Structures are given as C-alpha cells and as structure tokens.
Amino acid sequence: MSAKGAIVTGGAGVLGQAIAAQLTADGFEVTLFDVDEAAVTQAANRLSASSGANASGYRVDVSDPDAVREQIARLEHAGRRLDCLVNNAAINPRLPLSGQTPDAWDTTMAVNVRGPMLLCQAMRPWWQRHGGGRVVNVSSRTWLGGGPTAYVTSKAAIVGLTRTLAVELGSLGVTVNAVAPSVVETPLTRAGRTEEEFEQFAARHRAMTPLGRLARPQDVADAVAFLAGERAAFITGEILHVCGGAQLAPTA
C-alpha cells in the first residue's frame, strides 16, 4: 500500500485515458471503471505497458449501487489504496425539452449524478480510516450556458454535489473539487453529427473562446491531476473551468 491509488470512471474513453495516464505519471496506481469491459481492459493494459505501472480495468456500471459497493470492496480486499476518485463517466443523449423522455432523463441522471454520489458513499469509510483523500468531479462548461436538457442539468447538479460534499467530507481530510471543460473532440461530442455538423459546432466554440481553440484531453488531465495532488491540498469546493475563457461567453 505504498503508491497512492486513484479510480477513474469512464476510464475507457478519451478523457478517462488521458486523466489516467497523467495520474500514473504523477505516481498514482490507477484503476479504471467503465461499462465497456473489453475497452476498459484494453485501456488498462495499454497504460500498464506504456508506463510500467500496475493499472487495472473493470466493468462497473456506476449507476448500480450493488456493482459500486462490490467493486470497491474487492479493491480494498486486494489491498488497493483508494486515495483519489475521479468521477468522469457521463452520457449525453443530446435531447431538447421537446424530445426528452423520462427514461432518457432518468438514465442520464443515474450515470452522471447518482454514480458520483454512490462512489463517494462507498469510498467514504476508506477515507475516514486513512485520514483523507481527493475527489475530482468532471462537470462541463455548459452548466453556465445551457445545452441538451438532461446533460446540462446533470452537470449543474455535479457542481452542487461538489460543493456540498466539500463541506460534508472536509472533516475527514477529503477535498472535493470539479473541472468544467469546454468542448473536447471525442466520440461523445462527435456522436450523431456529420463531419460538417461537427466542424460547424467546433467553429462556433472556437469563435467564442478567447484562446481560439477547443480544449484538449491533456488540458483536462492536467487540471484533474493538479486538484488530485498535494499542491491543491487546501483547495476544496471549487469549480475549475478548463475552457480557454469560454466561461466568460454566452453559449454557442
């Protein structure tokens, strides 16, 4: 139990892999959670091969209370440290109010909001026994400007969850912060868009961003790693916008 341990949810995705790689470089032993078992296993194997670290990947539906509790218990039994939790897993059905269905709404909230809560709940006893930890939630710049109904509501809820858990877990030595990125080119942001539609979408976001480009996975990974590290030991309840100043602009 020498190396600090970190869990990254959504670990098979572009952002999850970038975050996991940076945390590994910073000395964390990383565990990836994802609903895609084959993809998360491959991501963990690639990370282990490229870094020489002992990364692992597991299929976990973060919205399932039993799955979360059981996997956290397995990690504890195996002697893995649970110092840091990065709640990165998310879905975005991109439905407007007129097309929103109760099932799509509930599923989005279950993954994007209930999942982070369940993981914090499951890891709280470890943090209490070991004197602290770090939680970094991945929100979105859209919580300020709007967008797809369920997704944006869930990302605003993550801000509320971050702030309230910072208060509740502070006495245990746990810091809770969030990063709020702007658009990153990933399969999630490209899904359902043609090449032309995505380029128009990206161009609008570049135009409203003072630094004139989209966010990159490494931009997000660096911000997460900072909040997970010792240099951020006295920062909690904060929302770090990783969007080149787009938080200052109206929505695209």
Results as ranks from 00 to 15, higher is better:
135 V>A: 07
138 V>L: 12
138 V>K: 05
139 S>I: 02
140 S>V: 03
144 L>H: 07
145 G>A: 06
145 G>F: 03
146 G>M: 05
146 G>D: 06
147 G>H: 09
149 T>I: 08
149 T>D: 04
149 T>H: 03
149 T>N: 03
152 V>D: 12
153 T>S: 15
154 S>E: 07
156 A>M: 08
156 A>L: 12
157 A>K: 05
158 I>W: 08
160 G>T: 10
161 L>D: 06
161 L>C: 07
163 R>L: 10
164 T>Y: 10
164 T>C: 12
164 T>L: 12
164 T>P: 07
165 L>A: 01
165 L>W: 00
166 A>I: 00
167 V>Y: 05
167 V>T: 13
169 L>Y: 10
169 L>W: 01
169 L>D: 02
169 L>V: 08
170 G>Y: 11
170 G>Q: 12
171 S>R: 15
172 L>A: 13
172 L>W: 11
175 T>N: 15
175 T>V: 11
176 V>N: 07
176 V>F: 05
177 N>K: 14
180 A>M: 14
180 A>N: 13
181 P>S: 15
181 P>E: 15
182 S>K: 00
182 S>N: 12
183 V>N: 07
184 V>P: 04
184 V>E: 08
186 T>W: 08
186 T>C: 10
188 L>H: 03
189 T>A: 01
190 R>M: 02
190 R>E: 01
190 R>Q: 14
191 A>H: 10
191 A>W: 04
191 A>P: 00
191 A>N: 09
192 G>H: 09
195 E>Q: 12
